[in-house]
Design a protein around this nucleic acid. Sequence first.
RNA 1: GGAGAGAUGGCCGAGUGGUCGAAGGCGCACGCCUGGAAAGUGUGUAUACGCCAAAAGCGUAUCAUGGGUUCGAAUCCCAUUCUCUCCGCCA
Length: 423
Amino acid sequence: MLELNFLRENPQLVIERLAVKYFDAAATVQKILDTDVLRRETQKQLDDNLAESNQIAKEVGNLFKSGKQAEAADLKARSAELKVLAKDLTDKTEEIQKELNNLLVALPNLPHATTPKGRHAEDNPVVLLEAEIPALHEGALPHWELAQKYDIIDFELGVKLTGAGFPVYKGKGARLQRALINFFIDEALAAGYLEIQPPLMVNEASGYGTGQLPDKDSQMYFVGLDNFYLIPTAEVPVTNIYRDVILKAEDFPVKNVAYSSCFRREAGSYGKDVRGLNRLHQFDKVEIVQLRHPDDSYQALEEMREHVASLVRKLELPFRIIRLCGGDMSFTSAWTYDFEVFSAAQQRWLEVSSVSNFETFQANRMKLRFKDQSGKTRLAHTLNGSALALPRIVAALLENNQTPEGIKIPKALVPYTGFDMIK
RNA sequence: GGAGAGAUGGCCGAGUGGUCGAAGGCGCACGCCUGGAAAGUGUGUAUACGCCAAAAGCGUAUCAUGGGUUCGAAUCCCAUUCUCUCCGCCA
């Protein structure tokens, strides 16, 4: 959520910047400004009304004490009038406040001033390409066929147990998953992150805090009996740890890493793009989250980008980093890098990580603040990134490393898997 | 799931209708004291919104949340949520 004060002072800038995301904000911004004026007027009336009521209440108390019942009765009458008015003003204020809030929540985050122009994914500039595309042997298979051939991932069985998009990992497939998780977490620990094991279900307030609610609720699984949502990413519980928190300046940087299963309904996506591990309803991911002082959040973003790059390199996967253009950026992000690995049998780039700086957008929503040197309370910056999401990494590992003798495990991972080949 | 107790500021804790944004303590910050420190001592120490060009100042709201009673609610009433204790169940 954008900050009202900022919007009040820079409405034109907001409109221009959001145009980069192909979001026409002019009407909403104007409405926000109008509603804000109305809100302050109404608020003032209500405050004055309440101030008088408070005054009267004091006087009545004094009159009672000195036995002047008659005068007290007069004041009580006035108080009753005020009360009716106050009720009315309260309702009005709340309604206006709600409307203002709805308008504010509808505006995306401002993209950073350096955001590349462009509308679609094809317009995203590649900022780094480290991709030696492996030459596969004759008869190379896509990962879903490899999974079956070596009996390491069973998609059919998942359908039996739950439904499509809930694969069962078996034998070396399961161990490969566990190895990747441990590898990713260890790497994050070495980079100074604090490990967190969050709940996999969250309440409504948390869903709202990171922006999944109110409007993206159809993407989350919902446990109706208890009003819980299954997390679509560890970002939700981990970032919400700091909801309504005021940090001290010396608490920075806050660096958390969390492994979790992630649950996504992915309503409306079918077809060949979602075959095998390409898109699942349940998958595993290691997520890194940072809270930063606004002055060095972009330094942190580069640090996180480098961290993720080092992971992909150690796994010896061909990859590229792209900077999302305005039109392709998410609602909440100010700056995003996507990491894509090349999956050689599918001949496709697969997104395996998205690293973003949200600046104060999430922080404003969840009231995540800090006290700066001068004692002033300010919103912190939040950042997060996948480091990494497992299924597409597994897909690329299987496809790229296949040989007629079996699938080779990258050296960095062997200490974690305990084997160097899937045969 | 059953029975009971409870929820107050960063923490502990007092407060059963007005003088309460809230005693007292701890913690923290700054000052005094000291050769330095401890002890002692003084002052300060929530958040949001609004008024004001701004600071100062002032107003309003907030004692789990939402409603109600009352001229007036941290205090009384109702509902909800959460926590704790005992019993039951259980990895």
